[in-house]
């Protein structure tokens, strides 16, 4: 499937910053910022991750491949040619992330990531401080991964024919994908399309509620949503998924509930509860294919019960958000429909 292009009607606040959002750009040490800004627009547009590791070359990960950043703004496949980041570069990013107040990041360091304005995210690794068997915080930060979030793309409209059964029947969708394949982007887009009623001509707009544990889906920052999730969407920000699902179920009477990266026993129990209440769930989970999900004890019963109407498997085979396949409730691969873009090569 060709890479989705931006919808004209959706929010595209990222545009015009040369592909590097300001929230990420201002964190970069001057020399890295300068090198990055002299990169070609194609690289910047497709930029997904900037990885700054102490005493190692700066590593960029883009939709079109990866490479090590060179001083003059080119990407090299050879680590030896890359620009090496020092301890002070990592510290620079951490200072910026914490507004010079490391103590204010304790919780974030414990979880290992910081959410930036605009739904971008910075992953952090250092040395974990463990007390009573639990990670308290991290010190001696050695690596930072700045992940650029992409706005609504309209990709879910390409998938609508597989996810909607005539006449307009929709059901729960589980997106299965390894990290960095665009599952959050797809979920965000699904939420927007369903909430705004643009998804499919036969599908009426629905009330959507989002549990946004990591402030990624809506990119909420100080109470303002960065990403447009549609006019009928409520967002519960920063709440643990299992608890959040129950809160939303009780309080916001959603028709569709959206949540990212389910996995734990509690998540699954809450998900069951929500499904039992007749609410449709759009969720995502880490995994390579449907088999992976069947192998996970917590998720397996859900698959066997046919709890999900459709499974969408993503990969990076041909760039992020390559749709590997779409499966129905019984795990059968859906075929490409005549006259339509084929969904997957095997389809």
């Amino acid at each position: 499937m060709k890479r989705p292009t931006a919808e004209p009607g959706t929010k595209q606040r990222e545009a015009g910053c040369g592909g590097v959002p300001e929230a990420v750009r201002r964190l970069l040490p001057p020399k890295i910022r300068k090198a990055l800004e002299s990169c070609s627009p194609e690289v910047l547009e497709a930029l997904e991750e900037i990885r700054i590791r102490r005493d190692l070359p700066v590593h960029l990960w883009t939709g079109r491949g990866e490479g090590f950043l060179m001083g003059e703004g080119r990407l090299s496949p050879f680590p030896a040619e890359g620009m090496v980041a020092g301890a002070e570069d990592v510290m620079h990013v951490v200072q910026g992330l914490s507004q010079s107040s490391l103590y204010a990041l304790e919780e974030e360091l414990r979880r290992g990531y910081v959410t930036l304005p605009g739904g971008h995210r910075a992953g952090i690794v250092g040395r974990a401080v463990v007390a009573e068997g639990r990670v308290q915080t991290q010190v001696d930060i050695t690596g930072v991964n700045l992940r650029v979030a992409r706005p609504v793309t309209g990709i879910s409209r390409d998938l609508a024919d597989w996810l909607v059964e005539p006449p307009g029947k929709i059901g729960s969708v589980l997106i299965i994908s390894p990290p960095q394949c665009g599952k959050t982007t797809l979920l965000r887009d699904l939420a927007y399309q369903v909430s705004s009623g643009r998804w499919h001509p036969l599908v009426a707009p629905r009330k959507v509620a989002v549990v946004d544990e990591r402030s990624e889906l809506a990119g909420t920052w100080k109470g303002r949503r960065h990403f447009d999730l549609g006019p009928r969407t409520d967002v519960l920000d920063g709440c643990p998924k299992a608890e959040g699902m129950m809160i939303l179920l009780r309080s916001m009477s959603p028709e569709i509930l959206v949540t990212d990266e389910i996995g734990g026993e509690e998540d699954v129990a809450a998900l069951r509860e929500v499904l039992r209440a007749g609410v449709i769930v759009f969720a995502s989970v880490h995994g390579g294919d449907l088999q992976d999900i069947r192998r996970r004890p917590s998720l397996r019963p859900l698959v066997e019960e046919g709890a999900f109407f459709r499974y969408v498997v993503l990969s990076r085979q041909r760039g992020p958000m390559t749709v590997e396949g779409i499966f129905d409730a019984s795990g059968r691969r859906l075929r490409a429909q005549p006259g339509r873009q084929p969904v997957a090569s095997g389809g």
Partner: peptide
């Protein structure tokens, strides 16, 4: 501010 709200320095 630091003890009870972990307010970042600029705000505090």
């Amino acid at each position: 501010e630091i003890a009870y709200a972990a307010t970042p320095l600029p705000d505090a």
